[in-house]
Design a binder for these strands. Structure first.
Length: 700
DNA sequence: CTACACTGTC
């Protein structure tokens, strides 16, 4: 393609006077600085119609540099290719253009070409080569470039030095950055800011505060960028005190958009959210004269992170009604909130909103969508989103494996896990946990064991307590209690609460009192205040009718004043959420609900239902225990759904804890009796009840 | 002849 053909694509020239080279050059310089692509294109058209570009290396170079600065690399490359006498300014401009516009690899290719060409890199070349190495995490090459900087005597240039710092910090090598920083003869504010923010990003909060202290001791005054990094650090370690000091400092110095940049106030909101001070965040947000999209997103994500789904939906509603247009980040938080409360219909409408705005292609949005659909009970939709995603990163694979797992589709989970191993995505601890837990929810003992040992062997991942907990759970549920116990004994690291909890619940399932007592003992040692171990043990004794032991455990519970988390269930009906606690009578239709339950109880008994009261911990008559079972929140929610929805409608119930054994039996029977599909989400998985059966097959 | 590094919310 020639330059003339390029110009055919360009807008018509609107420079009416004839400009000379120097005038053009200085104009292009200003377009570079302001990244005004369209003005550059106009000038390009102007000089090309004048016919003087081919013979004017100066102007051609300037033009290529200008396109590169604007990030318009194809045009920059075309012009670059035609310039015979390439000087270092031209090379540097191109390397910079690629490095700063998402093509670090091309940047390095050009750098090598430059060396081959015999052009010596200078202090303007290295910052971008180092940036490209950092972005690509090319540690070996990065160190070599650093060595070349030293050989070339450019180490003392503050721009080059800062770029070296930044590169090592991207590598996660804080120590190497610190060595370079300590040796720098001249440091400017950027050097300090790079170190502070680099420490924060690498989780070295203490180091960040130390460098900030040092900075103040030597009399360097920080700016908005410094404070942004420190606010992020405060959020990471929940240091509300320092966070508030920074807030006060910003207020005293002009605050919202005056002395410091406008980002700052949003970061303060975010800091308050991360310090679990949502009311401070809210107060600051409501007081803002100018709320931008990030202000909204910071607060919304704050509510989402602490599980306040309804607050998220309310803010989202306010935002949509107002003039602010939600973006990808908003959509991700809102989908997270839908996920938390199983709001499938709302989640679906947010999805279509996102599709209309073109957010669907974003990897992060896709991940949130898959999670939302899977957790709201629509595995099919989750799969559709997954299949349509052009680019799948580790998070996408993980959320899909988890989705299959919680729906008891262990085979599919294992299958896509192996599919992922065939791609160039490197697995991490998280996805191993996901696939192992999927195996245990489906009783895939051999597959799970194979993955556990394969992972340890082939992927250089040391199994952590969570992985052992999964393995113990897998073996235990399937009844291999001794093998599970042997695994715990063979562990190199100390088994944690999760590991013993897994064994204990397996003991309950398979009625093994001896191992249950061992695991419960360990559990109490690790966490004397955890209620679940006591509850489980007393259930096990109750099942064996060892009432004296039940009594002893119950006394322990009383003595330590342990409380079980209140259990609740809810259903959505016409965009309204109906929540029920144990024995709840606060609902408007409460009388009808209890009448329905009484009716169901009678019908089930005729069908052969015998209540299993072992989960009732109170020391009362059998008859009262039975009555208490019919107060369980999931039954209230189910009865409500049955009387308010049309026959045949699928019922979706969400519970905050695990579904109890007797409720599981009852719901199975009700699904047959009423000919309804009932989809229940509990804390650990989904149960699809249909025609008297449940998809979990007893694994839960 | 020209110019460069650090920068918030998922």
């Amino acid at each position: 393609m020639s330059l003339l053909k390029v110009t055919a694509l360009l807008p018509k020239p609107c420079f009416t006077t004839t400009l000379n080279s120097l005038e053009c050059g200085s104009l292009l310089q200003s377009f570079s600085n302001s990244k005004s692509l369209s003005q550059a294109q106009q000038l390009h058209a102007h000089v090309t119609t004048g016919g003087n570009l081919r013979h004017n290396t100066y102007l051609a170079t300037k033009l290529a540099a200008c396109y590169a600065a604007c990030g318009h690399m194809p045009h920059a490359q075309l012009i670059f290719d035609q310039i015979v006498l390439k000087n270092s300014f031209l090379w540097n401009s191109m390397i910079r253009g690629y490095a700063c516009h998402h093509s670090p690899t091309k940047s390095l290719v050009l750098y090598r070409e430059m060396l081959r060409f015999g052009q010596k890199p200078d202090k303007f070349t290295y910052p971008f080569v180092l940036k490209a190495c950092g972005d690509l995490l090319l540690r070996g090459i990065g160190r070599k470039v650093h060595a070349l900087v030293v050989v070339g005597g450019l180490e003392e240039d503050v721009y080059v030095g800062n770029s070296i710092l930044s590169m090592y910090l991207k590598f996660g090598d804080v120590a190497a950055a610190q060595v370079v920083f300590d040796k720098m003869p001249l440091r400017d504010l950027t050097s300090w800011n790079t170190m502070v923010s680099g420490c924060v990003k690498n989780g070295e909060t203490q180091g960040a505060f130390e460098i900030f202290g040092e900075m103040r001791r030597v009399g360097v005054v920080g700016d908005g960028t410094t404070l942004l990094a420190l606010l992020s650090a405060c959020g990471d370690v929940m240091d509300l005190k320092v966070g508030k000091e920074i807030h006060g400092h910003v207020v005293r110095n002009g605050g919202n958009g005056k002395v410091y940049n406008g980002f700052l106030v949003n970061s303060i909101i975010d800091m308050y959210c991360n310090c679990e001070s949502i009311s401070c965040a809210r107060k600051l947000f409501e007081g803002l004269i100018v709320k931008d999209i990030v202000s909204w997103n910071s607060l919304i994500s704050g509510y989402e992170k602490r599980g306040d789904a309804f607050e998220v939906l309310e803010l989202f509603g306010r935002m949509v009604e107002g003039s602010e247009v939600p973006d990808e980040v908003t959509v991700i938080s809102v989908l997270g909130a839908c996920n938390q409360i199983s709001a499938l219909r709302l989640g679906t409408s947010v999805h279509s909103y996102g599709v209309k705005r073109g957010y669907g292609v974003n990897v992060a949005v896709g991940t949130a969508l898959i999670g939302m659909y899977a957790n709201c009970g629509s595995l099919i939709c989750a799969c559709c989103v997954f299949d349509e995603m052009p680019e799948k990163n580790l998070a996408v694979w993980t959320v899909m494996v988890t989705g299959f797992g919680i729906h008891g589709r262990g085979r599919e989970a294992v299958s896509i896990f192996y599919e992922m191993l065939g791609t160039n995505v490197t697995p991490d601890e998280g996805i191993f946990t996901a696939v192992l837990s999927a195996c245990s929810h489906s009783g895939l003992v051999d597959e799970g064991k194979e993955i556990f040992y394969k992972v340890t062997r082939d992927y250089n991942v040391d199994p952590g307590p969570t992985h052992y907990a999964c393995l113990v759970d897998l073996l235990g549920r399937a009844g291999y209690l001794d093998e599970a116990y042997a695994v715990i004994q063979s562990m190199k690291l100390e088994p944690n609460e999760d590991v013993w909890t897994a064994l204990l619940s397996a003991c309950r399932l398979h009625r093994n009192v001896k191992l249950a007592e061992i695991s419960a003992q360990k559990l109490f040692e690790l966490n004397p205040n955890g209620a679940s171990g006591y509850v489980c043990l007393s259930n096990i004794y109750a099942a064996e009718r060892r009432w004296k032991d039940v009594e002893n455990v119950r006394a322990l519970v009383k003595k330590s004043r342990l409380k079980k988390a209140p259990s609740y269930s809810f259903v959505e009906l016409n965009k309204m959420f109906h929540q029920f606690f144990f024995g709840d009578t606060s609902h408007q239709q409460s009388d009808d609900i209890y009448a329905k339950l009484k009716d169901l109880n009678e019908q089930l008994k005729k069908a052969g239902y015998k209540p299993d009261t072992t989960s009732v911990l109170f020391d009362v008559e059998e008859e009262i225990k039975e009555k208490m079972l019919w107060n369980h929140s999931e039954r209230l929610a189910l009865a409500f759904a049955l009387i308010t929805t049309a026959p045949g409608t699928t019922i979706r119930i969400t519970k905050n804890l695990r579904v109890c054994g007797d409720c599981h039996t009852v719901i199975k029977m009700i699904s047959k009796l009423t000919d309804r599909e009932i989809i229940m989400r509990d804390i650990s998985r989904f149960h699809h009840f249909r025609d008297g059966l449940c998809s979990c097959g007893g694994y839960w």
